[in-house]
Write a protein that binds this DNA or RNA. Sequence first.
DNA 1: GTGAAAGCGCTAACAG
DNA 2: CTGTTAGCGCTTTCAC
Lengths: 334, 334
Amino acid sequence: MATLKDVAVLAGVSVKTVSNVVNGYAFVKPENRRRVEDALSATGYRPHLGARNLRRGRTGFLAFVVPELSIPYFGELAGGVIAAAQPFDWSVLIEQTQGDRERERATLASLGPHLVDGALVSPQAIDAADLARPGVPVVLLGEHPLALPLDHVGIDNVRAAHTAVRHLVELGRRRIAVVGQHPTRGTAAQRLAGYHRALAEAGLPRDEALVAEALRYHHRDGAEAMSVLLDLAEPPDAVFCFNDMLAQGAIRTAVDRGLRVPDDLAVVGFDNAEHSAFSVPSLTTVAPDKAALARAAVELVHRRTTGADFPPREVRIPFTLQVRESTAGPSRPT
Amino acid sequence: MATLKDVAVLAGVSVKTVSNVVNGYAFVKPENRRRVEDALSATGYRPHLGARNLRRGRTGFLAFVVPELSIPYFGELAGGVIAAAQPFDWSVLIEQTQGDRERERATLASLGPHLVDGALVSPQAIDAADLARPGVPVVLLGEHPLALPLDHVGIDNVRAAHTAVRHLVELGRRRIAVVGQHPTRGTAAQRLAGYHRALAEAGLPRDEALVAEALRYHHRDGAEAMSVLLDLAEPPDAVFCFNDMLAQGAIRTAVDRGLRVPDDLAVVGFDNAEHSAFSVPSLTTVAPDKAALARAAVELVHRRTTGADFPPREVRIPFTLQVRESTAGPSRPT
DNA sequence: GTGAAAGCGCTAACAG
DNA sequence: CTGTTAGCGCTTTCAC
């Protein structure tokens, strides 16, 4: 590979001049500029980003820490983050933690300024003590487990859950269950709060038996939780699941037991995975604006990396409730 | 951040000695080793990977070039690649091309040895002329568009398609359609060949009207293609889709038209997305061993980066046909 | 065993 | 406007 020096020798100028041309510095003698440009294309020169960044004191990388890329929501979000980071000349480094607290801790700890300029984190299991700042700006994306003074970009989870459950109430459902309660996940607590608020407003009693836990938020977890709920003496007539995979798993269990969705059981999900618009039945779900989420998070962490100093920001991204067949649809022909 | 030099000064030794300790060089005087280790933990030293790699002449990065991370198949694959790259101390750089030929070309061209040590590529639209080697080892993953002498890791697409279609034949289906034909995608041609072979073996006629194109392989494309197929004078009684999203979209259209799956229309997909085991009906699909795919590809590109010289390798990863409700299930109660 | 010094490819002072 | 030089943080000869 050609280096700056090679180009300089070929063009008969100094490295500085070549560097000036490469970096678009305006004041270069036209004659020299031409010769440099010729040499540039003759050698097929490409700057060594590592060396440039070493010199500039930046790394050129942004970390995106997620539980698993195989969860469609994070896949979609990651795509958005990569796209949003491009204008800032950032390459995105994706780190998977499997939602494991120890790995989240280790990952965060390893994220020094040597490796990345900043980080976007969707923490699952981590708690306050673990979030010792890794020395680079961190913006929490989606999850915000703690009342910590950290930048956060997300939707209003309490309000979103409230909207979802109120929708079920308005459809006349009385025994509304929830799937996805989680011991440490901050958004789970917030969504549960929104659920409780909606119940209270509707004058419906709380029933702890209707709150089902899920640890991994995959289809299987939703299916299993639903199974337990349907075994109750008084099974629910509706269920609000904390993500779409849980919801699809829940629907699967309901159908296996011969229930009709939404007639016997109405189901609401969360995240609006692409699939949910096409499933049978299609899934009513809370739809955050994922592209806006990614963009806002990248922009915020960028401002931090420029040294901007302001109090921790809480950025709220809009969401909508996508009403589909799993709550409002025609009962499917049999 | 502490540098090697800082540590050296604190420990009262030279940089070299510190470097030796950090890199696990055996012969360091115990006394010095202790002092260095103390200084190391006192300063919280972490090596600057960029600088190390600059010096070592490697980048520490592996590129993974995909159309879109929001496609669950690529999300799952990316997760596997990240995991498989870890043992080689590689961070994975994911590049999205949106399946666009120009962006694929540009991405490949930008992948110099300055940026990454190697690349894994799932090319969608690119053709021979564009695959001018970017100067680093490239391994094709999944797709292999051309009869080019390049390393390739994938499943036997002809055989996989043949297996899928034979399954439909054995169920007694006679008008078997295909969704996902594509002008440049190599795997599409291979899957079509497998389809034709299975038809021929069964003594079924070819009918060009039963071959539907799809450009983006999302749900919507499958839904639209299915719609056209169902409008035929003689609509199909089975359809083989080139990925699971197309298949789910096709099912959606069938259901919307009041057809029963699998009774009126049997559907087979490709990729075995996690979702397909839980959808209603669950989807019969070709299931490649994705973890093995990722592992084999990473290992192969690693061997290339060590300078190993051997003729282009073709690595075949096993697959299975997951038979589920969309072909063999009970007709769903109505 | 360890120190001094060179240099990976690049940019930023600083002269000129 | 352009050349020279130092140095980002690290590893690696090469002496000692």
